[in-house]
């Protein structure tokens, strides 16, 4: 349930970014390698937002696929299923993560 802590951080970011404007949607990038459950995050957001200026706002999650680049043959592999960091082309495990670890507030939609 660290989603609750994460929502508190998101709320802090939102408050600093929008001043006293009414927040409608907070857009997030969340990589597949993050252990964040979007449904749980949405539920926790209601707990955090209710009774505050952020009440009525919602989180919009953009999932970013996990991609690793092979340090041996430079092939990019998009991971699916088991999160084993291995090159699909040459099977090397010496890879670097290209994407999938994102956890960012990208933008906030406010009412005008």
């Amino acid at each position: 349930m660290h989603e609750l802590s994460l929502c508190r951080s998101i709320a802090g970011i939102a408050r600093r970014a929008v001043a006293d404007r009414k927040v409608r949607t907070i857009n997030l990038d969340i990589g597949e390698l993050r252990q964040v459950v979007p449904e749980t995050l949405a539920h926790c957001w209601q707990l955090v937002a209710v009774g505050t200026a952020l009440a009525g706002s919602r989180l919009e999650v953009n999932r970013i696929p996990a991609v690793v680049r092979c340090l041996e043959c430079a092939t990019d592999t998009t991971l699916s299923g088991l999160p084993i960091l291995r090159c699909a082309s040459c099977q090397a495990t010496t890879v670097e993560i290209v994407s999938g670890e994102e956890f960012t507030v990208t933008s906030i939609d406010v009412e005008v």
Binding site: S9, A17, S107, E111
Partner: peptide
């Protein structure tokens, strides 16, 4: 940003802040 479906207008504020930054 795209605010189709809304009666009132909507503005998008770019943020790009890591949630773990703090």
């Amino acid at each position: 940003g795209d605010h189709s479906g809304y009666q009132t207008g909507s503005e998008r504020i770019e943020v790009l802040e890591a949630i773990f930054a703090e």
